[in-house]
Design a protein around this nucleic acid. Structure first.
Lengths: 208, 208
DNA sequence: GTCTATATAATGATAGAC
DNA sequence: GTCTATCATTATATAGAC
């Protein structure tokens, strides 16, 4: 058995390429990222990229698929937890996304941009997720919750509000900090505060 | 005077190019848009594009600058109106942006993407706007308002919430409709409802 | 598996005729 | 002002040696 190429405690070439590709695609998008840049960033050459992934397009699709999963997989887990109340799911949703997007600020932008550019791979992955979410136990749990709490507006508003309040501030983090010499910690603290504030606000909104 | 090239009731070549460029840049970004595509879309050829705008880059900068202005110019007018209360400005803000982004759904995405990709032109335009907003009469008016209403949280949260609730649902309009056969009118009606609901919600949040 | 060299295609921009 | 033809560069992908 001398085929063992991936040494323990090290990173395989394939993974090196993926790491570089992920970084560049998420920063500059598909068209803005050149295979040469990926090769340089990962310390290999273009031939190897094609050896492992056959084409830039195929490599992109792998990266995009993983990004969608990163963004949505844990979300489904949260939504489908049968032992959790709607209120608890709300708290978890906010906490999870603030943490996730603080550590990977480009993730949402990448997924939104890719779907915006009518990327079929991303579109179909997003669609799969939407179907799963609608079919999940969360849907019926939420309907029950809305009845009990006599939520007057459409449930779509309720969900839109939660996502908007949580995700949008993470999307404009750079915009907020750019230009001035604002310490990134200030905005990070603000985001931490929102983990607690958003559930509180959502309550207040329903009662308004 | 035979130099009159722009015929009444018609569109100049320069404008034709800009219209095509605006559409494509906003859909596909700088790197995704090819000069040949712009030429084809506007019914002219690449040579003319360079004749009028010297380069793809310069054309992009013009389009990007106009997009930032479209997004922010009216906003400053709303904020700086001395005869308007904070509450009224809030209503105007929501109404204005729902209308603006319904008619031009790509505008925000384009501006956010461009700033995301560290486009210096867009960055500097956004920065100019931020300075103007901070220096505007709105800033002091808001501080006064916050005191009177004893708003407990940071004013940044207050502003973030308004923008998040207003803008984010417009950013994911396509995402929401895509995949299923959802009538776009449904989401449009939802957005219309938000013109009235968001100011109400914001009140409720402050009191939570 | 990894590299260098190269084929093939596309892209931005210009020259020069009309 | 507008066009066709063309150049120079860059990009993706592959061939073939090691």
């Amino acid at each position: 058995m001398n085929g063992k190429q991936m040494i323990e405690n090290d990173v395989s070439t394939e993974e090196k390429i993926k790491i570089a590709a992920r970084k560049l695609f998420q920063e500059k998008g598909f068209d803005g990222t050149k295979t040469r840049d990926i090769a340089k960033e990962s310390g290999i050459n273009i031939a190897l990229l094609n050896y492992y992934f056959r084409s830039k397009q195929k490599l992109f699709e792998i990266i995009a698929a993983e990004a969608v999963k990163d963004l949505f997989f844990n979300l489904l887990t949260i939504l489908e937890n049968e032992d959790s109340t709607i209120d608890h799911k709300l708290s978890q949703f906010v906490e999870h996304h603030v943490d996730l997007l603080k550590s990977n600020p480009n993730l949402i932008h990448f997924v939104l941009s890719s779907s915006h550019e009518n990327n079929p791979t991303v579109e179909s992955l997003l669609n799969d997720f939407k179907i799963k979410a609608i079919q999940s136990s969360f849907a019926s749990q939420y309907i029950q919750y809305a009845k009990e709490n006599k939520l007057s507006e459409s449930p779509v508003h309720y969900l839109l509000n939660i996502v908007s309040l949580t995700v949008f501030p993470l999307m404009i983090k750079r915009l907020f900090e750019g230009g001035f010499d604002i310490d990134p910690k200030i905005y990070d603290e603000l985001l931490e505060e929102r983990k607690i504030l958003i559930p509180k606000w959502i309550k207040g909104m329903s009662e308004a």
